[in-house]
């Protein structure tokens, strides 16, 4: 009895003491938390607001935009989109961009995966040198070679050709893809490959059925990081393409902005269409994007 009486108040006092102290700090940290949330939402408005304005603008008739640049659409009207897609031939640019981007990403990631695997796993003379050769491209401003590329393409009949663009983009994505895939492979134990080798698989077979599936996360990062810059590139097609029916979205947009300068609603709609594929990629691959952005940190 005595012992219980003596021991009971003690924990109670302890609890009370603990409960009062955090209540004060919790109050303060709640306020703090609310302040943090406010700041975060404020910046979200800055980051996302402009895009929202474009999206809203794309749904408003042009006359309304000119009268009141900020405002909600009076009715749900997609005519800006049909005008941009058909009359302004954004559809053509869109399909060109999609073809060129997909082809070059596929080419880039497959050749990079092969080279990165060889560099990460096999020992041969000149391996370090070859790796350094590829990785040096991470810092090379490749676009400064534009003029020689232009004359080389002229002699190869690749001016005004989408194939030329595919080859160029694939080449310029190799350094980053090799970097990412090679880094990934080095962190991966080679036991499965050993087992397949003992089972008598040759190197090609081994690569396709064992290594490629293992590499998937790295391939995804490389794909995402190759997709966006290729989809976005403006410099090469500006110089290397001539006929409007081969234009990709970015060069198409410069023409579109010239032709439809007064029709803001249509311009906004065209911008939204140009953004859709990247929004899709972004939504599907946030994880890969974070992994790729922080890849430089793990060195």
């Amino acid at each position: 009895m005595k012992t219980t009486l003596r021991t009971v108040p003690r924990p109670a006092g302890k609890i009370r003491a603990e409960a009062t102290r955090p209540r004060g700090t919790r109050h303060r940290s709640l306020l703090h938390g609310a302040g943090n949330q406010l700041l975060l939402w404020a910046y979200a408005a800055i980051a996302f607001g402009p895009l929202l304005l474009v999206l809203i603008g794309s749904l408003r008739p042009n006359a309304e935009i000119l009268r009141a640049p900020v405002g909600l659409p009076s009715s749900f009207d997609l005519s800006n989109y049909t005008r941009a897609w058909q009359t302004a031939s954004i559809s053509t640019y869109f399909i060109n961009s999609l073809t060129v981007t997909c082809a070059s990403v596929a080419l880039c990631v497959s050749v990079s995966a092969m080279a990165a695997y060889a560099l990460a796993r096999w020992k041969f003379r000149g391996r370090a040198l070859l790796a350094a050769f590829f990785l040096s491209g991470l810092m090379i401003p490749a676009k400064l070679g534009l003029l020689p590329v232009f004359y080389m393409f002229q002699s190869m009949g690749l001016i005004d050709s989408r194939i030329g663009l595919v080859l160029l983009y694939a080449a310029s994505g190799i350094p980053f893809s090799v970097f990412v895939i090679m880094g990934f492979m080095r962190g991966l134990p080679g036991e499965l490959e050993e087992a397949a080798r003992i089972d008598g698989a040759n190197e090609g077979r081994l690569f396709v059925s064992v290594v490629l599936p293992l590499m998937r996360p790295a391939l995804a990062v490389a794909t995402v990081f190759q997709f966006a810059p290729t989809w976005n590139d403006f410099f090469y097609p500006l110089v290397l393409l001539r006929s409007g029916d081969k234009y990709t979205i970015p060069v198409g947009l410069t023409r579109f902005f010239g032709e439809f300068a007064a029709d803001r609603g249509t311009l906004f709609a065209g911008l939204v269409i140009a953004l859709v594929p990247l929004a899709v990629v972004f939504a599907l691959a946030t994880k890969q994007i974070v992994a790729g952005l922080t890849a430089g940190m793990s060195r």
Binding site: A47, P50, N232, P250, L278
Partner: peptide, 8 residues
């Protein structure tokens, strides 16, 4: 905005 083309 990171993914959007600088041109856009």
């Amino acid at each position: 905005p990171y993914l959007i083309s600088p041109l856009i």
